[in-house]
Simulated assay, not measured.
Amino acid sequence: MSMTTNTHNGRWSHRLGRGAGRAWRGYLRHERSVVGWLVARGVPAGAATAVLWLFKLAVLGLLLYTASWLALLLVFAVVAAWLAWNVDSDDEGQPVWREGHGGFGLYDKNEWRHDTGDPDEP
């Protein structure tokens, strides 16, 4: 019986981790090439690294700004849905104009007439 050390190769988490590692290594490779390109154009190496860090911070700030607006939009949507769900509909108890047992008039849901009309008048 042989024991292999690589028993979890087929799992999705393992493949996801390997993919993330490859993406990170690719990003670092491109970052080094950008620093090399900037140095070849006459920018000092420290300044090129600082420019990349400023770019990363700007992208992070933009992502956080966007995420905060999306979170605020989500909060407003949840509050609006909660208010719509819990609103008391006062329309059920309000009297309506219709034809009832005492003629045309203002009736509530219990068939009580609320207007002061004579049912025998035309």
Rank of each mutant, 00 (worst) to 15 (best):
W24Y: 07
V39K: 08
L52R: 11
Y27A: 10
L16S: 14
A45S: 10
G103A: 07
H30W: 05
G102R: 12
G26Q: 11
W82D: 06
F104A: 15
A40R: 13
T5V: 06
S89A: 10
H101L: 06
L16T: 12
A81I: 09
T49P: 00
K109A: 10
M3L: 14
L16Y: 07
D115W: 00
D120W: 03
G93H: 03
S2E: 13
G61W: 05
V75D: 12
L38R: 05
A67P: 01
D88T: 15
V96K: 14
G17H: 06
F55C: 07
H8I: 05
G17V: 02
N9M: 08
G102Y: 09
G61V: 01
V39L: 00
G46M: 03
G36L: 06
L74H: 10
A71D: 07
Y27Q: 13
S33K: 13
A77T: 05
G17W: 03
G26T: 13
L54K: 13
R32M: 03
A58H: 05
A48H: 03
G46P: 02
W24A: 14
L16D: 10
H114Q: 14
N110F: 02
L74E: 08
A23S: 08
T116C: 03
T116M: 05
P44R: 08
A80S: 12
Y65K: 07
N86R: 13
V87F: 02
S89G: 06
L63A: 13
R29Q: 12
V35E: 10
D91M: 09
L83E: 08
A81N: 12
P44L: 01
P119G: 05
R41S: 11
V59W: 09
N86M: 02
V34S: 03
M3A: 09
R41L: 11
H8G: 03
D88E: 14
W112F: 05
